[in-house]
């Protein structure tokens, strides 16, 4: 199950989706908005996506994870728009008969999502500046403006 949403991620519903009588293990990963990055203070994050492509890439990731591991259920939800401190921008939930597979698949899914899925994070720093995060590319911090 793949979803992009502007709303807070409903982890209760997500866990209910992946809990299954054929599964003995569930692993849920949440990526949450952290206050400090290398000493700089974040007040919130903003996420944007190339939605059609992101959905398709996430579906491909789910399919590949199901080929690599024997998963019972697999769900990935990414939130878009503003994500306040402590709240989840992404949730990956997998279930499997035994725990090793759920941990491995969950880790691979979030690692691969962060490498390949066309979704971008904009830092909203406490000093009022905003900055799209493009790993490996030159920084282009913008002061003020709106997300």
């Amino acid at each position: 199950m793949i979803k992009l949403t502007q709303e807070p991620i409903d982890t209760t519903a997500l866990l209910a989706d992946v809990q299954h009588e054929e599964a003995g293990a569930v692993v849920l990963f949440l990526g949450t908005t952290r206050k400090f990055t290398a000493g700089r203070e974040t007040i919130e994050l903003y996420y944007d996506a190339y939605q059609e492509m992101a959905t398709q890439e996430l579906e491909r990731l789910e399919q590949e994870a199901r080929e690599r591991w024997s998963l019972v259920e697999c769900a990935i939800v990414h939130r878009l728009g503003l994500v306040p401190l402590k709240e989840a921008s992404v949730a990956v939930a997998v279930s499997s008969a035994h725990r090793g597979e759920a941990f491995e698949a969950g880790k691979w899914l979030i690692d691969t999502l962060k490498e390949h899925v066309p979704i971008w994070k904009q830092e909203h720093w406490a000093d009022g500046s905003q900055e799209w995060v493009h790993p490996g590319a030159p920084s282009s911090s913008v002061t003020g403006g709106d997300a």
């Binding site: 992404v90 979030i110 899925v117 066309p118 979704i119």
Partner: peptide, 10 residues
């Protein structure tokens, strides 16, 4: 066509 800068979702 779309231009895809380095991604940073997650």
């Amino acid at each position: 066509l779309a231009l895809i800068p380095p991604v940073s979702g997650g």
